[in-house]
Design a binder for these strands. Structure first.
Length: 1031
RNA sequence: GGGCUGUUGGCGCAGUUGGCUAGCGCGUCUCCUCGACAUGGAGAAGGUCACAGGUUCGAGCCCUGUACAGCCCACCA
């Protein structure tokens, strides 16, 4: 492997030469594998499982790089660190992609893959598994190229057996607790394929049609109640202002009709209300009255809905067809539990024809029904106006036919009881977001507590473990062998030979009542049963006999599958073996942190918290929840009890770190569907994995998105100059190491680390700087500021270590005296390698190997493992405050001399004579003691002068550190010198004016901290002294 | 429509509880191949911190408003 590096390292770092071999070594030596019995406190992360839809892009690369930084650091800190990798089956997206390729290659749709529908389903699922294998492997390959230190022995897939168990357990638990229910939902219905489709599969087409204005007659009778209060979601619409308080037109002026405009007149057959704005004086007097529905004469209420209705638009009246329009459906939902609740009427058959609710129009297709309705309206004189109109109509991507909003029965999860505790743990700080502002999105979304529709009309996913059977009568139900009602639990059960094989509820024939715990009575009903998860933990293989028992009774399984996010929500514990109580679960749950993008805070993060608390919160956790909800009641409540124990609350993680979104050069989000994703492997090929990782880390600021302009290289790969930053840094690291190695004493081990007294000022300074850097880096990573971590490393290594320290020790390294510095330098390099390893694992591991090769005795030290990834995190060396204070003064002297040289265009090789008049004896001694350092870096010969001594003739003066004069001889360029003096004088004059102004401000002198005022005075004095010297 | 973010030298970005002459990388300009590195070294130029108010002794930072750009979610009878 990489330790077999050639003794003469190549001049330029070549990532390709070491990356693959290094990664293989890590795998071979199981460096990333963790066992619950391993030593160290637990530290764990679960990967946000990438979709198997396609390959990873840079957005995944940044997310996984940051996770790897945390895991590698934790591992080096001696923690029992586990990073669980895995993939998401991504229901809709994956099935759509595979169906599309089948359609393109074979011209078949999913129903015609085999002779029977059931066989076609099996065939499609088989083919998607094949796809999953192919893309899953590619994704894993990408993660490994990136250097991710996942425990590959624990790889999971959201559709694998273990995840299936977690899904079954959770579903049954929810079902049993009455949190899964059957409800109505508008879906996008493809009437041609007779299936629902997702939003992604809809394209919009501009259609020229008409806007029909239809007159509805106002009827004075109230259908129910008083019309209720205006429903308003907007915070500004005053609830206080009642409709009746608004002055109305006098009765005689009130119109007798309302005119509504619609592009779909046929839907009026399903209207169940018309809505107006509560503050609209034209109409609010009518709230609570009714209108007569044209053509069929049904009376429907006039309601107020300030969310739906924009009083400034059109007539200010909107017809409400809850079953056939998403907005109108929202109206129905909003009013559902209010006095002015409205009906919901479905007009559509699955094939797109109107059903019996459409009365005389039943059986007609969309266009035919529209024509007839319009004609009938016209005949009845109820058509006020017809104007041409252009609108966008959603079409199914597959059948190319218009999509209908269609009311269908779906399974839902009741959110309110699950959401409340999940809200509480974020509100009370048990779970923290980084950056904090992202908590807001979580809270506002979860706060709506909208029930979660979990069934999907797909074949790829966890099939819903519910079987149903329709019974015509109670008698028929009791005729089913093994069926009985459970008196205690209030549900029905089916008995097999060995006990209960399923429990469930019955569903009233009246669909609007939903699923309830009622017993079959008159008429027909549907019974829904779910086999308990302890006897049917998965729905595969071994459980088929039990399933057969249920089906033997004439029950059929729901054809739908669960929403992908259902299994994703269980990810933090399903990956650790839940529902079994495994050692891994005990050790690593809750996980330490979740790193993800902000777009899935709602879809994923919130649901993981909910399901974690629901499934793993124990009695103690729940009790604490209860206490928190009523803080005033407990007189003896001590403040400590408010801090919830993460273990008992069941939360899946305490920290949620949100990484920025990567946008392309045009500012658009990278995604597979847009095709603008950049494969990280392309960047790894052009720049190396470490360069990619390092650069991505510097971009992980607290901002919400970063732009990544990419270009094609000569071989057609995507690349970007941005990654030069990381590549150059790696090359610098490589060469600095190479330099130290080339100065290694031949065939000898290094001497012991020197005592402080034996170290030079520069030695002590660089060690101190490293200590500061390490502290900064630790703090940065602890707060998930990966950019600050990378920057601290970069500035220290390049700026301090290479530019200053190595340049200082370079001339002396071959001398015996220089050996001390070499020892210090190598020790700092050792620390730097540890510090950088989490972000640039490959190159640091390679250099580490070389270091061990040169100094095998190192390996006997406890802190050094043969592999850097298994070695200890850097430890903090002592701080030397004196060097920290003095060394920058020497840097300033050198900088000033270099500056003057450059201004005078002196030959860089010309050794100048320089005299320093340091301000005091101590300063003079420091200059003397570091004469070699100054002479070397400023290319000069140095003598020191007593303060105030006469300056050498023909010299250029420059003052640094306020009071240290430097005289540089041998520069004969009066013109340049004059320019310099003029510029300097200008600067000082300006500065003096500013400082004087500040001190003249009475408020400043009176209120600013004294230390600050003194500083200002000192500066003023120095500036005035300098100006005086300039003459 | 709701939520969020950004606006700092040519470009891409830092700037942590307000406090010295606002930093970094790329690019530009001058000089340098002297044995770690030209994916390099030494230096330089370049910014009234989007705009308008306010708070303060003091504002890139805090408050209010405006403009522009963008992201996420929901989408118009």
């Amino acid at each position: 492997m990489s330790t077999e590096l050639p003794t003469d390292l190549p001049k330029t770092y070549d990532p390709a030469a070491i990356e693959a071999a290094t990664y293989k070594t890590w795998l071979d030596e199981k460096c990333f594998h963790a066992e619950p019995t391993d030593a160290g406190e637990p530290y764990s992360i679960v990967i946000p499982p990438p979709n198997v839809t396609g390959a990873l892009h840079l957005g995944h690369a940044i997310n996984n790089t940051l996770q790897d930084i945390l895991i590698r650091k934790a591992r080096m800190e001696g923690k029992n660190a586990l990073w669980i990798p895995g993939l998401d089956h991504a229901g809709i997206a994956t099935q759509a992609v595979v169906e599309k390729t089948i359609k393109e290659k074979e011209g078949k749709d999913r129903y015609s893959l085999a002779e029977t529908p059931e066989k076609s389903r099996e065939e499609l699922v088989r083919r998607i598994w094949k796809w999953k294998q192919q893309y899953g492997d590619r994704i894993i390959g990408q993660l490994q190229r990136l250097g991710c230190s996942c425990d590959w022995d624990r790889q999971r897939f959201t559709l694998d057996e273990q995840c299936a168990k977690a899904v079954r357990e959770t579903f049954f638990k929810l079902f049993k607790d009455g949190l899964v229910f059957r409800g109505k939902r508008l879906v996008n219905w493809d009437t041609h394929l007779q299936t629902s489709i997702s939003n992604d599969e809809i394209y919009h087409e501009k259609i020229k049609t008409n806007l029909w204005h239809i007159r509805y007659e106002i009827v004075d009778s109230e259908i129910r109640g008083t019309g209720g209060s205006p429903v308003s979601a907007g915070k500004d619409h005053g609830r206080a202002a009642r409709a009746t308080e608004i002055p109305n037109p006098s009765d005689s002026l009130r119109p007798t009709h309302m005119t509504v405009a619609t592009t779909r007149p046929e839907t009026l057959l399903g209207d169940t209300a018309v809505a107006v704005h509560s503050q609209d004086p034209r109409w609010n007097w009518a709230i609570g009255k009714s209108v007569r529905l044209p053509l069929i004469g049904r009376l429907i209420p006039i309601i107020a809905d300030d969310t739906l209705v924009d009083p400034t638009f059109g007539s200010g009246v909107v017809k409400v067809t809850p079953a056939h329009d998403p907005n109108d459906y929202a109206v129905w939902e909003r009013h559902r539990n209010l006095p002015d609740a409205i009906e919901i009427i479905n007009l559509l058959n699955p094939n797109g024809t109107l059903n019996e609710n459409a009365g005389p129009y039943a059986g007609l297709y969309r266009n035919k029904s529209r024509e007839k309705v319009v004609a009938d309206l016209e005949a009845a004189g109820l058509l006020a106006k017809v104007e041409p109109y252009e609108t966008e109509v959603g079409h199914s991507d597959r059948s190319k036919t218009p999509v209908e909003p269609y009311l269908s029965d779906q399974w839902f999860v009741k959110m309110a009881p699950l959401a409340e505790p999940a809200l509480e743990v974020v509100r009370d700080g048990t779970i923290k977001f980084f950056p904090e502002r992202h908590a807001q999105q979580y809270l506002s979304w979860l706060g709506e507590k909208r029930d979660w529709p979990i069934s999907r009309q797909l074949w790829w996913g966890h099939r819903i473990p519910v079987w149903k059977k329709h019974f015509d009568s109670k008698r028929e139900f009791w005729g089913t062998p093994g069926s009985y009602q459970d008196e205690v639990n209030d549900w029905l059960s089916l008995l097999g030979n060995e006990g209960i094989i399923a429990v469930g509820y019955v569903h009233d024939a009246d669909a609007s009542k939903g699923l309830q715990r009622i017993y079959p009575d008159k008429g027909g009903f549907t019974a829904y049963v779910c086999p308990p998860s302890d006897i049917v933990p998965t729905l595969t293989d071994t459980q088929v006999e039990l399933v057969a028992l249920i089906e033997g009774e004439g029950f059929t399984q729901d054809p739908d599958v669960l929403d992908t996010w259902f299994s994703s929500a269980l990810w933090p514990f399903s990956t650790l073996g839940w529902p079994e109580s495994t050692p891994a679960l005990a050790k690593w749950y809750p996980t330490s942190v979740l790193l993800t993008g902000r777009d899935i805070i709602t879809l994923w993060v919130a649901r993981m918290v909910m399901m974690g608390m629901y499934n793993l919160g124990n009695a103690e956790g729940r009790m604490q929840n209860a206490e928190l909800k009523t803080p005033s009641s407990g007189s003896s409540a001590n403040p400590q009890s408010a801090i919830r124990n993460p273990q008992s609350s069941g939360i899946p993680f305490a920290h949620v770190a949100i990484n920025p979104t990567i946008l392309d050069g045009k500012g658009e989000r990278m995604s597979k569907s847009k095709g603008n994703g950049v494969d990280p492997v392309d960047i790894i090929d052009t720049h190396g994995a470490d360069a990619l990782r390092f650069t991505l880390a510097t971009m992980a600021t607290e901002t919400q998105d970063v732009r990544m302009p990419v270009k094609k290289d000569s071989q057609g790969r995507n690349t970007s100059d941005k990654f030069d930053l990381g590549r150059n840094f790696c090359n610098k690291l490589w060469n600095a190491s190479r330099f130290l190695f080339s100065n290694w004493p031949a065939g000898a081990a290094l001497p012991a680390y020197p005592e402080k007294e034996a170290m030079s000022l520069a030695d002590r300074w660089i060690v101190t700087r490293f200590a500061r850097t390490l502290a900064d880096a630790n703090a940065a990573i602890a707060s998930y500021r990966f950019d600050l971590y990378a920057k601290a490393c970069y500035d220290f290594f390049w700026g301090d270590f290479c530019d200053w320290y190595l340049e200082i020790i370079k001339p002396t390294l071959k001398t015996p005296a220089g050996l001390t510095s070499l020892v210090v330098a190598v020790d700092v390099l050792d620390g730097v390698l540890r510090l950088l390893h989490p972000v640039t694992p490959f190159i640091t591991e390679a250099i580490w190997g070389k270091l061990n090769e040169l100094d095998p005795a190192r390996l006997t030290c406890k802190r050094v493992s043969k592999r850097l990834c298994k070695s200890d995190w850097a430890r903090t060396p002592p701080i030397d405050e004196e060097s920290e204070h003095v060394f920058p003064r020497l840097q300033a002297i050198i900088g000033a001399i270099r500056n003057v040289r450059n201004d005078h265009k002196a030959d860089p090789r010309k050794v100048l004579a320089v005299a320093i008049a340091a301000p005091g004896e101590a300063a003079t001694r420091v200059a003397e003691a570091n004469r070699g350092l100054i002479e070397g870096l400023a290319t000069c010969t140095l003598r020191t002068l007593a303060p105030g001594a006469a300056p050498p003739a023909e010299s250029v003066r420059v003052t640094v550190n306020d009071d240290c004069d430097i005289y540089i001889e041998g520069l004969i360029d009066p013109e340049a010198e004059k320019l310099r003096a003029v510029k300097l004088r200008e600067e000082k004059t300006k500065l003096i004016a500013a400082l004087k102004g500040r001190l003249a401000n009475e408020g400043y002198v009176a209120k600013a901290p004294p230390k600050l005022i003194q500083e200002t005075r000192d500066q003023l004095a120095a500036a005035e002294a300098e100006l005086a010297k300039l003459g």
